[in-house]
Simulated assay, not measured.
Amino acid sequence: MLPRTYEGQVCSIARSLEVVGERWTLLIVRDALRGTRRFEDFRGSLGIAHNVLSDRLGKLCEAGILERRLYQTRPERYEYVVTPAGLDLWPVIMSLLLWGDGHRAPQGPPLVVVHRGCGGRLRPGLTCSACGKPLGPYDCEMQPGPGAHPADSTVSPASPA
């Protein structure tokens, strides 16, 4: 089995991979940025095993990417809210999405990221294809694209907490 750390690597990419490099982690962050907050909603969206999701959410909270907040007391239930450090991953997630759309989506993009201000699409460099403005997580909404499955629906990034 490969080690899970990059000891001896003096590299910010290696250090980042220690936090977000495990399988499922970036997909959990993707869903959190789209507004998913509750454990069962992550499970339903991802089809991930309970123990794996629990482990990844715990690690994301420890790393300060998500914050665990109590939303119900009887029984105790928690939701996971994106922190400022988590929001800083939005450009990474969107860059991966755009790369995947260009190189790994033969039927077309499953999701298109649209600028709420003018309706233009997100393009590399994270700017709007229509107006040229730089875009962030609260400037955009995601809509089903030509490669979407019929069950996909319009989704938007999480609102500020």
Rank of each mutant, 00 (worst) to 15 (best):
Y80W: 14
D88S: 14
W24T: 12
L87Q: 05
P110S: 07
R43F: 02
H149L: 14
V19T: 14
C118P: 08
G147H: 07
P150M: 07
E141S: 02
I28Q: 07
L87W: 07
P109R: 08
W90Q: 01
G47K: 06
G64V: 00
L46A: 07
R37P: 11
L66E: 05
D88H: 08
M94R: 14
A63G: 02
G132R: 03
P134A: 14
P146N: 09
S95L: 02
R123I: 11
A148C: 07
T36F: 12
H149S: 11
P144E: 00
L87P: 01
A130S: 14
G8S: 08
A158F: 05
I65W: 00
V10E: 08
A32H: 10
I65V: 15
C140A: 06
M142K: 02
R34Y: 12
G102C: 10
H103D: 00
E7C: 10
R30E: 13
T83D: 05
R123H: 04
P150A: 15
K133A: 15
V19S: 02
S16F: 06
E7K: 13
P137H: 08
G44A: 11
R104N: 09
L135M: 08
G119Y: 10
W90Y: 13
S129Q: 11
L2R: 15
P150G: 08
L111P: 06
L98I: 13
L53V: 12
L33R: 04
C131P: 11
A161D: 00
T25W: 07
R30K: 13
E76S: 14
L70W: 03
G120K: 00
P146L: 05
S159E: 14
E7G: 15
A158L: 10
L97K: 12
Q9R: 15
P84L: 02
G86N: 03
I93Y: 10
M142Y: 02
L70D: 03
G117D: 06
V19N: 05
L17P: 00
V19I: 12
L135N: 08
F39M: 09
D88V: 04
R30F: 09
A151M: 09
R77Y: 08
I13L: 13
K133L: 11
V155H: 02
T154V: 15
R77M: 11
Y78A: 05
A49Y: 10
Y78F: 15
G136N: 07
Q72D: 01
L70A: 06
L96C: 03
G145E: 03
G145N: 03
M94D: 09
A14L: 01
A158T: 10
R38P: 04
G132L: 02
V155S: 09
A63S: 11
N51S: 10
P3N: 10
I65D: 04
S156F: 09
S12G: 08
L111Y: 15
C140M: 08
L27H: 13
G120P: 01
I93L: 15
V10R: 07
V29F: 01
L60C: 10
R38L: 11
A151H: 12
E67P: 00
E22S: 15
D31W: 09
W99F: 14
C131R: 12
P144C: 03
S153G: 14
H50Q: 11
G35H: 13
G44D: 06
G58P: 06
K133Y: 00
P157V: 08
S54H: 09
D139T: 01
R34N: 10
L89R: 01
P146Y: 04
